[in-house]
């Protein structure tokens, strides 16, 4: 357990540095839902190459780390109904709210953006209530 919080902190610092490179280098906010969303709904078409390059890095580096002993276990549910409902909720929700854990959470809170802080409070609350309801009350997840 002690090692887990340390790895969490180290990984977190790396995520923050990634956001710093994207901001100071390209002048953009590193928000995963915004980067993916922009590719799908075609907003700011000129940025598609840098978005694709970003996503290529996100997919490739974990694969390079796996042989070095990184944790490749996702422990993801195999229930297709849950996966589809959750995916739709995450897709619609992050676009309607204009951000997710990386955009509103990491990039928003660090500049003391009120929107980022409010969004983060609500998605964490909603996630925690979902756990109470679906894990402890209904026992579905």
């Amino acid at each position: 357990m002690e090692q887990e919080w340390f790895m969490g902190l180290m990984g977190g610092l790396l995520i923050g540095l990634a956001g710093a490179v994207y901001l100071l280098g390209n002048g953009r906010i590193m928000g995963a839902s915004g980067i993916i969303g922009g590719l799908i709904d075609g907003s700011e078409r000129a940025a598609w190459k840098e978005r694709m390059s970003f996503l290529a890095g996100v997919i490739l580096l974990p694969l390079l780390l796996l042989p070095l002993g990184a944790n490749g276990e996702t422990n993801l549910t195999q229930n297709p109904v849950l996966l589809i409902i959750a995916g739709l909720l995450v897709g619609i929700g992050t676009r309607v709210a204009n951000g997710c854990t990386s955009g509103h959470g990491v990039c928003g809170i660090s500049r003391l953006s009120l929107r980022g802080i409010v969004a983060t409070v609500f998605y964490i609350l909603a996630g925690a209530i979902t756990m109470v309801l679906f894990r402890h009350t209904l026992g579905w997840i």
Binding site: V58, T77, G87, G93, G127
Partner: peptide
């Protein structure tokens, strides 16, 4: 902002995935 974040939080809680990590684990 509020409704979207609540929807996102529900999906996040249901399976434990948000946009960044799901892309990172494509491979």
């Amino acid at each position: 902002l509020v409704l979207g974040s609540v929807m996102f939080g529900m999906g996040w809680g249901l399976v434990g995935l948000c946009p960044g990590p799901t892309v990172a684990s494509i491979g």
